[in-house]
Amino acid sequence: MVAFGWCVLLLVFVDEILAVAAFGAWGWQQSPQWLLVWLLPLVAMTVWFAFASPRARYGGSLRRPVVKIVVFGLASLALWDIGRHELAIGLLVFSVVVNALAQVPAIARLPEQARSMREPAA
């Protein structure tokens, strides 16, 4: 179960990268292209870091899942808007599945268990 759990958490990270890439792809199709192609992914990463990452400063039991839904939903919508309908649906389904699996208690505890094993006993 531990190896499966770490694979799920790796897929969650891949999902986050795919969402950022979707924002970049949408920005590439817009004007001014040179600005949006890097600005949109940067904004998405900043919002994710502040509200949805495991150590988010402003995360919480309500904010974290809401921001995740908004980010993955907008990333899928961005792909849909540029005509990549199959990718949009695929990203949305992939996001729902891997993030749901990551909520399984045995998997959700893995990062904290790993951190506690690395810290020296006082």
Rank of each mutant, 00 (worst) to 15 (best):
V14A: 14
L40E: 06
V2A: 08
S76I: 04
D15T: 11
V71W: 04
R64V: 04
L79T: 06
E112V: 14
L91V: 04
G5P: 01
S116M: 14
A114H: 05
V20D: 09
L92Q: 11
F23L: 00
A3E: 07
Q113T: 12
F4P: 02
A21K: 03
A19T: 06
E112D: 13
L35D: 09
P105C: 01
F49A: 13
F13Q: 15
V8T: 09
V37D: 02
L36K: 08
E16V: 15
V20M: 13
A114Q: 05
L10I: 13
F94A: 04
V98W: 07
S53P: 09
P32Y: 09
N99Y: 02
S76K: 01
V93L: 14
L101Y: 10
L9N: 06
E86K: 12
T46H: 01
R109N: 03
G24A: 10
A78Q: 04
W48P: 00
V20K: 00
S53G: 09
L18N: 07
Q103D: 12
F4C: 00
Y58I: 03
S116H: 13
L101N: 07
S31A: 15
Q29M: 14
S61D: 14
R118G: 11
L62Q: 13
W6H: 02
L10P: 11
L110E: 01
A102C: 05
E86I: 13
